[in-house]
């Protein structure tokens, strides 16, 4: 039989497609879908509300922000942890491919799933609650951009946590995103490098969009750089 060295693109494609197949069969997808339904439920609750529109939209936003911070550890985190965990890493490590393609495959193929879940959720919530919340299509557009940026940044942060601590990475990522990141994310921190959730808030409210995007980009690039450097040394 003739075997050849796989080029990185083909390897990323193979690992990415397999990750999607396994995700489709996992509980993580259904739990994530259930979480993504929370903003829609919130929208249904406020649709008949007489409170101020901003208050109503904030309620939707709160659930949306929570969702977008929990789903990346569930989807990207569990998938990567499965592949580089102590009992399974040998299968991929022993193949004729550089390790960075595993990280690349997870980000390229799974982050769009996270974005899709959150985007569908946000869009449905907007359709249901736009009158009660007083938000227009521009607000929805900003929110979607914020979701995209946050999906990427939160996933990168999760990837870094998994690579640094494969066994506890999902828990660490969840704790970070739900405590430290939320605590710092809503404030105008100096560097704003860990202000992932700030992206959505800033973009949705029209506040300092550039800073939010830069913040998400810094988080993404920084975390992925650490992960790519570290994954080669995992034993």
């Amino acid at each position: 039989m003739t075997t050849t060295m796989l080029d990185s693109r083909t390897a990323i494609d193979a690992i990415g497609r397999m990750s999607l197949t396994r995700l489709a069969r996992s509980k993580a997808l259904w739990i994530s879908a259930a979480l993504a339904a929370l903003p829609v439920l919130a929208a249904l609750l406020i649709s008949g509300s007489t409170k101020a529109p901003a208050t109503n939209w904030n309620m939707v936003h709160l659930t949306l922000r929570l969702t977008i911070l929990i789903i990346p550890p569930l989807i990207v985190g569990s998938s990567l942890a499965d592949d580089i965990g102590e009992k399974s890493a040998a299968y991929l490590w022993s193949r004729a491919l550089p390790r960075w393609v595993i990280v690349a495959a997870k980000v390229i193929y799974l982050v769009p799933v996270i974005f899709a879940l959150a985007a569908v959720s946000a869009t449905l919530a907007w359709v249901i609650a736009r009158d009660a919340a007083g938000v227009d299509v521009v607000d929805l557009g900003r929110t979607l951009v914020g979701i995209a940026a946050t999906s990427l940044a939160a996933s990168a942060l999760t990837v870094m946590a998994i690579v640094l601590a494969p066994r506890f990475g999902v828990v660490i990522a969840l704790c970070w995103l739900l405590t430290l990141d939320v605590a710092l994310g809503g404030r105008a921190m100096g560097a704003r490098v860990i202000a992932t959730s700030f992206s959505i808030a800033a973009l949705a409210e029209g506040r300092d969009v550039a800073v939010a995007l830069v913040s998400a980009a810094v988080i993404t690039i920084g975390c992925l750089a650490v992960a790519l450097k570290r994954i080669d040394r995992i034993e």
Binding site: T3, L6, A14, K87, S88, A90
Partner: peptide, 27 residues
Amino acid sequence: PEHESSYDDLTGREFVRFLAHLAGVPK
């Protein structure tokens, strides 16, 4: 490897096919 795999959600055929492809067997 000594330890068991964690690819329990795949069939044996899918598992072996995936790893064969990653080892350089054309798709």
